[in-house]
Simulated scan of single mutants.
Amino acid sequence: MFGRRSGINGRFDDPRAHDGKYPPDWDARRKAVYERDYYTCQQCGRRSGSHAGDGGVVLHAHHRQSLRDGGWHHLGNLVTVCQYCHDGIHGHPTGSGYGVGGFNGLRVLRTAGRAFLRGLRWVLR
Rank of each mutant, 00 (worst) to 15 (best):
H51Y: 12
I89L: 09
H62A: 03
A52V: 06
G88S: 13
G70E: 07
A17C: 13
N9R: 14
P24C: 04
A17S: 13
S50G: 14
T111N: 07
D25L: 07
R110A: 14
K21C: 08
Q43K: 15
Y98W: 15
Q42W: 08
Y22V: 08
A115F: 12
R5C: 12
C41Y: 00
V108I: 08
S66P: 12
T40I: 05
Q42S: 12
L67R: 04
H63D: 05
R5I: 10
R47P: 06
H74A: 14
A32I: 07
R46N: 11
L67Y: 05
H73Q: 07
I89A: 05
P23M: 04
Y39S: 01
P93H: 01
Y38C: 13
R121W: 15
S96T: 15
R107P: 01
G56Y: 05
Y22E: 10
G71H: 02
E35K: 07
G53T: 09
G71Y: 02
V58E: 00
Q65P: 07
C85G: 04
C41H: 03
S96V: 15
Q43I: 11
D19T: 13
N9V: 09
T80A: 05
F103D: 05
R114M: 14
D37R: 09
L117Q: 13
H63K: 07
D19L: 11
G55Y: 04
R36P: 01
V57R: 01
A112H: 11
G97K: 02
S48R: 05
T80I: 06
H90Q: 02
R36H: 08
G105H: 11
Y38D: 14
C85T: 00
R29E: 03
R121E: 11
